[in-house]
Design a protein around this nucleic acid. Structure first.
Length: 439
RNA sequence: CGGGGCGUAGCGCAGCCUGGUAGCGCAUCUGCUUUGGGAGCAGAGGGUCGCAAGUUCGAAUCUUGCCGCCCCGACCA
């Protein structure tokens, strides 16, 4: 993409309303614009990141055997009356009337709808297990939206729902998602720590929040330090194999958010030098809730004995739009964002230090074409801004590689390659620079 | 919802106390000079001062009501 034809409205100064780094940087880097409290328009650069995250989530869900569908944002109130949640949900649910005065709502989540869809289609244990997910915009009328996309009212969420004939099956489904979540966050360059979460009336050990550590996190967290860098299963992982060792390794070490924190247990179980108290951002939440919805909505399945039982269900959420902010919180410096490669909106920023200079232009065009041929997403700054402004802007938007081309280097046949994360700069021949980027 | 704060040009702000018809920096446009880490000079354009009512000869400024936004708290992907 040529910057001269792109839409990238960056800001030199910090907008007054933005308090935390991710919010500030997303506004300054031209990723989002706020249109109302907690509601954001995603500009091209922000959308590019959102799509990258979405793609990783989708890929890992598929690997774990989940099937994608897409449910609507608007739902009928009747559906929610069946589960009893229409009254229970409270003012956080945005209620709407259509022209016929029918009660509608903008979905804050989809348990009712997926259960309704599922029960009409599946009657036999032979068709289980199934895990269905979608990635769709949600609306929750938060009391206090804040921190940009981290706590918006409208947000993009991956929500998945598993259906099993019995509790043991549901446990397997839960373990798959547990591991899929570890892999998803790992691929985004995040260190996510699963922490026991409140299971409500169901009880048991089947609810975890996935927390990433960041100073500006909304909740205080306490855990064993070894959890931070614990290795995550690689691509050779077999989801049909035994996943319990992966999970046990994490659940046996202490990890809790402040609601579940037990200071005495923390002190007793975790050696002093391993005690980590920090702040965290919740980026995912998995939950087993048994027959809560299947019973209320009549989603019954015939077992091998011919008896009908309500499906055992779980739900699995990832805050996709929140992750954009969370990744920035975890990865930025004074100059701007530092994107992990996997979610960067472009892999390379090609900087033409002297647009209009025939040799420099030609060298840039050549590199730009070669990068495209290699399938490498490149943002080519072909504008006639001054060098300093181009450097600052490129640092701000945080692309992993900056390829700097100017007359001075070209004289000796070199370009400069800068790694945004390490700050390391090397002078290389154009070919060597391409090879390094492609590797 | 309770507490605090803010709303003046695209962004950041001053002016308000003590009413007299709007200003600064950045950005934008034109020209010249510059050009490897957010240039300099000269000129130009851009504002329903959040909205409404009131007080007044006169309101960005005073009064009242409303709207919007931000921060702190209780809740959440």
């Amino acid at each position: 993409m040529r910057l001269s034809r792109y839409f990238l409205p960056t800001l030199k100064e910090n907008p007054a309303e933005a308090q935390i780094p991710s919010h500030r940087l997303m506004l300054r880097a031209g990723m989002v614009r706020q249109t109302a409290a907690g509601i954001y328009a995603w500009l091209p650069l922000g959308l590019a990141v959102l799509r990258k995250i979405e793609a990783i989530v989708r890929d890992e869900q598929r690997r774990a055997g989940a099937i994608e569908l897409l449910m609507p944002t608007l739902q009928s109130a009747d559906l929610w009356r069946q589960s009893g949640r229409y009254d229970a949900y409270g003012p956080e649910m945005l209620r709407i009337k259509d022209r016929h005065e029918r009660d509608m709502l903008f979905g804050p989540t989809n348990e009712e709808m997926i259960t309704e869809i599922f029960k009409g289609a599946v009657k036999s244990y032979r068709d289980l297990p199934r895990n269905l997910f979608h990635i769709q915009w949600k609306f929750r009328d938060e009391i206090r939206p804040r921190f940009g996309v981290m706590r918006g009212r409208e947000f993009l969420m991956k929500d998945g729902y598993s259906f099993d004939i019995d509790v043991e099956g549901a446990r397997r489904a839960y373990r798959k998602m547990f591991v899929a979540y570890l892999r998803s966050f790992e691929r985004m360059g995040l260190k996510a720590i699963p922490m026991a979460a409140d299971t409500g009336p169901i009880g048991g050990d089947m609810s975890h929040e996935f927390i990433i550590l960041a100073e500006t996190g909304e909740s205080a967290v306490f855990c064993h330090r070894d959890l931070v860098d614990m290795p995550v299963p690689g691509d050779d992982l077999d989801y049909e194999g035994d996943l319990t060792p992966v999970i046990d390794a994490r659940t046996t070490l202490y990890a809790a958010t402040d609601e579940k924190h037990d200071a005495a247990r923390f002190a007793a179980e975790v050696p002093a030098d391993k005690q980590l108290s920090a702040r965290g951002i919740e980026v995912g939440h998995i939950f087993f809730f048994g027959t809560k919805y299947s019973e209320a909505m009549g989603c019954v399945i015939a077992g091998s004995d011919g008896k009908e039982v309500p499906a055992q269900m779980g739900s699995y959420g990832i805050g996709v739009s929140r992750l954009v902010g969370a990744i920035i919180e975890a990865s930025h410096d004074e100059a701007g964002i530092v994107w992990p490669e996997a979610v960067a909106p472009f892999r390379v920023g090609l900087i033409n230090l002297k647009s209009g200079d025939a040799e420099t232009d030609a060298a840039c065009e050549d590199l730009y074409a070669k990068l495209a041929a290699l399938g490498i997403d490149t943002l080519y700054d072909d504008t006639d801004e001054r060098a300093g402004a181009k450097f600052s802007n490129m640092d701000l938007i945080g692309l992993p590689w900056q390829l700097v081309v100017g007359p001075r280097g070209l004289k000796s046949g070199t370009v400069e390659l800068k790694n945004r994360a390490s700050g390391e700069r090397v002078e290389l021949s154009p070919e060597a620079a391409l090879a390094k980027i492609a590797s």
